[in-house]
Amino acid sequence: MAALAALLASLPAAVFLSLLFEGIDRKLHARMQGRIGPPVTQPFYDFAKLLNKESVFPSSSSKAIFASAPVIAAASSILAGAIPLASLVAGTSVVGDLILILYLLTMSSIMVMIGGSSSGNPYGAIGFSRKMVMLIGYEVPLLASILPLSLKSQHSFSYHGIVQSQVGMGTCFAFAYPSSAFAAAAFLACIPAAAGVVPFDVPEAKTEIVHGYLVEYGGPHLALARLAKDAASFALSFLALTLFFYHPPLFEGHASLGGLASAILCVAFAPAMMFLTVTVPRTVFARLKVGQAFKFCWSLPLTLSALSVVLSAAGF
């Protein structure tokens, strides 16, 4: 029951943190370009503004899919962000919820993609095909990089189990074994692609295909589609921090506060993760082409994750 309450409380928290993280990202991005940048609260204004606008449905779209896709997308990526938060706070989690989290993140991408392609806009169609390629590109290394963690934590696919096994080891996975160190590198290298930022924002490349699958969206639906993206990058950076860098001396909160304290500490450190994996790449790289992006995903992250799986199977 307590776990359910924690999850329910985590949902609005995940929404809030997603938007806050986008604000931090935009501010740092701007400062790295020499700009002042928008206030950190800007995404909240944008979100509120878009919610108050009217949604326009193109006549060529299949309305049911077009309208429901962003809702499902936002819901699933918020859930993907809320589950880790809740299980840290409650100190428990369901068996195999890590698979669920990653599935929800993929779900969110697929839903936005389907929504875009149902708009009947050629840019949406190109965005769809590009996103498809990207999905195939980053999903495999992303999933493969989780395997070593599971192997090292008694074959558990429970999020909380993996976090707790770091507590048991007394050190975080990124520094514990060679295999998990490679897995951490692979996971981090996949985040820009999974979050869909430059250099991997090919499916929505604004100068090429006018935001691809988002092209026909407006108003509350656009707000939700964008929230889905923000929540995904929040969830990914939070996952990266807690799965690979949950260094117990740093994150194990005071005993009296329990899980809440460590969750707050993780949230406080997650922007650093996001800065490294989202803000810096999108500041210092040019957008890749689809082929180049795919080639990247299947070279560096895939090699790293394959290496980590082999190493962990061999017992390193």
Partner: peptide
């Protein structure tokens, strides 16, 4: 690019 970006981050914005 990284060096230029971090230099800008440490400087006052334009």
């Amino acid at each position: 690019g990284l060096r230029a970006a971090f230099r800008a981050l440490l400087r006052k914005p334009v």
